[in-house]
């Protein structure tokens, strides 16, 4: 097997790694005068939980909002774009602004057990799954 080709596929294509602006939801208008970006995310799945790892560079725990409405989990990270007094931006590859992204939770997620933490610009959200044992089992009697 050709190793170098395989390794490339471990990362998404280059253009997908670039910071992307988030589409404004239809009918909704931004209330802050900053741009809105859609953060990159890894989703890990196992038998007992789903883990989200979200890139939120420049965001700390005080600037992170998580809201759960019905089955939609929305993550927001607030950014104050840097302003360097007396400096001029001479080369720019990325824009700076708030982050926002929503995820649809399935019924197997235990809403009460959700935990989140932020470190070095990464938000980790743990979404525990409802334990197998608590599912009701209905015995079907013959007859």
């Amino acid at each position: 097997m050709n190793n170098s080709t395989d390794l490339k596929t471990t990362n998404p294509p280059s253009h997908e790694l670039q910071k992307q602006e988030s589409p404004t939801p239809e009918g909704a208008e931004p209330t802050r005068e900053t741009r809105l970006y859609r953060p990159h995310v890894d989703i890990l799945d196992s038998a007992d939980k789903v883990t989200l790892r979200v890139n939120l560079p420049g965001v700390n725990e005080e600037r992170t909002d998580l809201t759960l409405e019905k089955n939609i989990l929305t993550i927001r990270g607030h950014i104050d774009p840097p302003h360097y007094e007396g400096f001029e931006l001479v080369y720019g590859e990325y824009g700076v602004g708030d982050f926002e992204r929503s995820f649809q939770l399935t019924n197997e997620i235990d809403r009460e057990g959700i935990q989140a933490s932020v470190r070095n610009g990464i938000l980790t959200v743990e979404l525990p799954k409802v334990k197998q044992a608590s599912k009701q089992k209905i015995t079907v009697a013959a007859g």
Partner: peptide, 8 residues
């Protein structure tokens, strides 16, 4: 555990 999505 496995990746369901991988963008980072």
């Amino acid at each position: 555990e496995s990746y369901q999505r991988r963008e980072r």
